[in-house]
Simulated scan of single mutants.
Amino acid sequence: MNLPNKLTVLRVLMVPFFVFFMLSDVAGEGSKWIALLLFCGASFTDFLDGKIARSRNLITNFGKFMDPLADKLLVCSAMICLIPSGKLSAWFVIIIIAREFIISGFRLVASDQGVVIAASYWGKFKTVAQMVMVIVLIADLGGPFHIIGNVLIWVSLILTIVSLVDYVAKNIQVLTKGGM
């Protein structure tokens, strides 16, 4: 297993620890900050694994499949954890997760046909916007950050929808070829 793939696996392994600190008060107010550090660290591995894979020509089918899956797991877990605090509405998170299920379904159908579909630029923009949104919402610094958080929520939603439409449009042949 190459370094980028190890970083992807590390990101997946960080998720339960992140969720634990997001949902527990084991460290008092520090739980939020530990969760934030874990989320930032996991998000950084996303940037790092892609950069290393591209620069060293270490792109693998495992990475093409697992990297977006690891991102979905991290970001969706974070958004679900933000619902009880009222920082995100359940309807918003449901739309985000529905998009992820649709894309994962496309990838499974494509995989059945021997096709691996890598993440698009719209999907990458969406992921970055969602990660920044989660960071701002967890930090909860108040003042202008409250407005920034609200703007990021809407930017994330728009990018989620745009990336879904782009993904389906570019890969519709996967469904038509699959006999659907």
Results as ranks from 00 to 15, higher is better:
residue 76 C to Q: 07
residue 126 K to C: 08
residue 95 I to K: 05
residue 47 F to D: 12
residue 85 S to L: 12
residue 97 I to T: 01
residue 142 G to W: 09
residue 81 C to A: 14
residue 123 G to H: 07
residue 28 G to E: 06
residue 130 Q to K: 12
residue 178 G to T: 00
residue 153 I to H: 02
residue 107 R to Q: 08
residue 66 M to L: 03
residue 155 V to R: 02
residue 71 D to Q: 09
residue 14 M to L: 12
residue 45 T to Y: 00
residue 94 I to A: 15
residue 169 A to F: 06
residue 48 L to F: 14
residue 53 A to F: 09
residue 31 S to Y: 06
residue 167 Y to L: 12
residue 30 G to V: 11
residue 44 F to Q: 10
residue 77 S to N: 11
residue 29 E to W: 10
residue 121 Y to N: 15
residue 117 I to F: 12
residue 127 T to C: 13
residue 20 F to C: 07
residue 48 L to E: 08
residue 89 S to Y: 15
residue 162 V to N: 01
residue 22 M to Y: 05
residue 105 G to R: 14
residue 51 K to W: 15
residue 158 I to M: 04
residue 103 I to D: 03
residue 54 R to P: 09
residue 103 I to S: 06
residue 94 I to Y: 15
residue 178 G to F: 09
residue 105 G to S: 12
residue 121 Y to L: 10
residue 14 M to Q: 02
residue 174 V to R: 02
residue 97 I to G: 07
residue 95 I to S: 10
residue 108 L to W: 13
residue 146 H to W: 05
residue 123 G to C: 13
residue 97 I to W: 07
residue 126 K to L: 07
residue 151 V to F: 13
residue 145 F to Y: 14
residue 134 V to C: 14
residue 97 I to K: 04
residue 31 S to Q: 11
residue 62 F to G: 03
residue 105 G to H: 13
residue 126 K to P: 02
residue 90 A to H: 05
residue 131 M to A: 14
residue 31 S to P: 07
residue 89 S to T: 09
residue 33 W to L: 15
residue 173 Q to V: 11
residue 95 I to E: 01
residue 3 L to D: 00
residue 16 P to W: 03
residue 174 V to P: 02
residue 66 M to S: 09
residue 146 H to F: 08
residue 96 I to Y: 12
residue 101 F to H: 00
residue 31 S to N: 08
residue 147 I to N: 05
residue 61 N to D: 10
residue 89 S to H: 15
residue 179 G to V: 03
residue 27 A to K: 03
residue 157 L to Q: 01
residue 16 P to F: 03
residue 44 F to S: 11
residue 4 P to C: 11
residue 80 I to E: 07
residue 179 G to T: 03
residue 155 V to A: 10
residue 82 L to K: 04
residue 81 C to V: 04
residue 39 F to Q: 07
residue 145 F to W: 13
residue 53 A to R: 08
residue 57 N to Q: 15
residue 174 V to L: 01
residue 27 A to Y: 05
residue 83 I to R: 04
residue 38 L to M: 10
residue 120 S to W: 04
residue 123 G to D: 05
residue 37 L to T: 10
residue 84 P to N: 09
residue 12 V to T: 07
residue 140 D to P: 05
residue 15 V to Q: 01
residue 83 I to T: 06
residue 72 K to V: 07
residue 152 L to Y: 05
residue 162 V to Y: 10
residue 154 W to P: 00
residue 164 L to D: 01
residue 93 V to H: 04
residue 111 S to L: 11
residue 173 Q to E: 12
residue 115 V to H: 00
residue 90 A to I: 11
residue 119 A to D: 00
residue 179 G to E: 06
residue 145 F to D: 06
residue 113 Q to S: 14
residue 40 C to I: 15
residue 57 N to G: 12
residue 9 V to M: 08
